[in-house]
Amino acid sequence: MSDRRVQWQWLVALSPLLAVAAALAAGAVFIAAIGEKPLEIYALLFREAFGTGYGLGQTLFRATPLLFTGLAVALAFRAGLFNVGVEGQLYVGGFAAALAGAYLPLPGPLPAVAAVLAAGCAGALWGAIPGALKARFGAHEVINTIMLNFVAFALVSWAGRALFLPATVHTRDVAAGAQLPRLDAFVPVLRGAPVNVSLLLGLALAFAVALLLFRTRLGYELRAVGHNAGAAEYGGVSIGGTQLLAMALSGALAGLGGSNFVLGYKHYFELGFSGGAGCIGIAVALLGRNHPTGVIVASLFFGALSYGALVVNTRVPRELVEVLMALVILFAICARPLLERAARRWA
C-alpha cells in the first residue's frame, strides 16, 4: 500500500468530521439568510450545551436515547442489516417499562430491574419479528422494520384506551422503586438537569457491545455475516440464526432506551414520547461509523444540537437544528463514496 493510499484511508476515516463541518457551513448560510451571525449563533449553541453544568446535563439527557438507538442501529449494521425500526422498538420498550414499573408488585429496587428488563424484552421481540422474516422468508428488513414502526404506534394507541389515565395520553406513574434516580443527586453540578441513571446503563451497554463485537465468537460471526454472508456460511455460521439474533439484540438495545424518558424522567409512558430518537439514531450510527466509541461521541454531538436549538430559539428558529441533522446525514452518506472513489483514482 503506497503512502498516498494510506493518506486517503485517513481521509475516509475522517469523513464524519468533514460531513459535520460541511453541514455547519451549510447551516451558516441559513442563519445568515435570516439576518443573524452564524459564528455567534454556533458559539452560543455549543457554549450553552457544554459550558454550564445544567446545560451539560440537558445535553447528556438528550444524548441518552440517541446512545441506545445509535448502538442498536450500529449493531445491526455490523451484521449487514439496516434496522430502520429502532423508533418502534424504543416505543414498545418504553411502553413495556411503564406497565411493568406501574403494575408489578415487587419489593425494594426490584421494580426498576423488572421495568428495565421488560423494556429490553419488548424491544427484542419487536426487533426479532423482522429478523425472523428475513431469516425465514428473505423478506427485506428495511421495509418490515418501517412497517412495524407504524404497527407499534397503532398497537400502543389501542392498548392505551384501557391503560391511559382518563382524558390523558399517558399511563399512570410507575412505582417509586421503579424510578431511576437523576444524576444530580450524586453530581451536584448537574443540578436541575433531567439526566439520569439510564445514561450509565447506555455507557455500560456501549462497552458491552464493543466486547461482544470485537472480543467474542458470536461477535465475530455476526461481523462475518455482515461482511460476506456466503463465506460465513461456508465457514459454518448459520446466516439466518445470526441475523435473527442480531435483530433481537438490536431491538433490545433500542427498547432499553425507553428507560430514559419513562423510568428516569416523566415516570410514565406518553404517546409519541420517542420523538424521532429512532431516526436520529440512524444518523448517530452513521456518523459514529458503527463503532460504540463513535456512537458515544456522535450521540453527544446530536444531544448538544438538540438542547442548543432551544437556547438559540429566540434568534434562530430551533427547527434549524433538524435541518442541520439532515444535512449531516446527507453529507456523511455522500462523503464516503466520494472519498473512496477519489482514493481509488489517486492511489
Binding site: F30, I34, F82, V84, V142, C279, I282, A283, L286, P317, E319, L320, V321, E322, V323, L324, M325, A326, L327, I329, L330, I333, C334, R336, P337, L338, R341
Partner: peptide, 27 residues
Amino acid sequence: RFRADQITTGLGINLLAAGLTRFVLVR
C-alpha cells in the same frame, strides 16, 4: 451520481423536509 446508500439518503431527505418545512412555516 455520488452512489450514496439509497435508504439512508431517503431517510435523510425525509428528515430534511420535516425540518425545512417547519423552518419555513415559522419564518
